[in-house]
Amino acid sequence: MANIAVARIKREFKEVVKSEEVAKCHIKVELVDDSFTSLRGEILGPPDTPYEGGTFILDIRIPETYPFNPPKVQFLTKIWHPNISSVTGAICLDILKDQWAAAMTLRTVLLSLQALLAAPEPDDPQDAVVARQYKETSDIFSQTARHWASNYASAPHREPVMDDKVAQLKNMGFDEHKARVALSTHNWDIEQAMENILS
């Protein structure tokens, strides 16, 4: 990797480790290997959101041309959010694309993602199904997002009704995650969800 990219990541690494947000456990960065090209990020779900208290793991890849091009970031923790693919974890965020600026850092990227969890942008969606639910039935969206956060990101607030529905389908022999996706996609209507899985 180009010297400048490595040198900068090393400096940023120190900056993130020393930052206030790390002290408060809001964000975290770890090395995956010694090459500084592949990093593991962590953000805490922001308060007063369905993601509150959850821990979301991110895969961060540093391109050779960093910081002149943005890092490639995606969620490894499954999440229900209009701007994040519930299938791949891919993120739709302008600063990770054409609004990237060389003055941004790993720290600002992680804080921006935290802000994105607090303020979804349904008009520029990554996951169309989630975005429609967010716009049309925002209560169901919030509950679904909380349900996913409690199951995948160890968030403390559970949604017992939804847990039961997933358990029902699971007991019928369906894969738990497939059942959860189908239920979430069909606004927790069990029959539609089953039909969807079987079709």
């Binding site: 180009a2 990219a5 050779e64 041309t65 002149f68 694309k97």
Partner: peptide, 23 residues
């Protein structure tokens, strides 16, 4: 959309640029 990756010569230029003082 992601911008297309920069051509390789740009990476070389980046690696050799005279960045700041690290002292």
């Amino acid at each position: 959309m992601l911008r297309s990756p920069p051509p390789s010569h740009s990476a070389e230029q980046n690696s050799s640029i005279d960045q700041g003082f690290d002292l």
